[in-house]
């Protein structure tokens, strides 16, 4: 079965945190090249790996991974705030 492409924000989040690919790889227990493949969206992580990444960045999975192209994080947060404010 061919899996669909998943989009992610790993690159942005990693740069924001100021860590290298090697450091992130060491924390989540993968090869540093795998971080490159994830950031270029050439590899879809398993649920276990996706959860490790979300736990590390302290963000919910749906803010890091999506089946649709992702908007900038700030736009998403503003939209979420508006939604909460609207309710």
């Amino acid at each position: 079965m061919k899996s669909r492409k998943l989009y992610n924000r790993i690159s942005v989040l990693r740069k924001e945190k100021g860590i290298s690919r090697q450091e992130l790889a060491d924390v989540i227990g993968v090869n540093f090249q795998t971080i490159g493949y994830l950031e270029r969206e050439e590899y879809n992580p398993s649920l276990d790996l996706a959860l490790k990444i979300s736990e590390y960045f302290g963000l919910p999975l749906e803010l890091i991974f999506s089946s649709k192209p992702l908007k900038p994080l700030i736009e998403e947060i503003v939209e979420l705030k508006n939604k909460i404010g609207g309710n």
Binding site: V30, N31, T34, Y37
Partner: peptide, 10 residues
Amino acid sequence: KEKEYLDERQ
């Protein structure tokens, strides 16, 4: 290499 020393993509 043994599977234990590789990550899931490898």
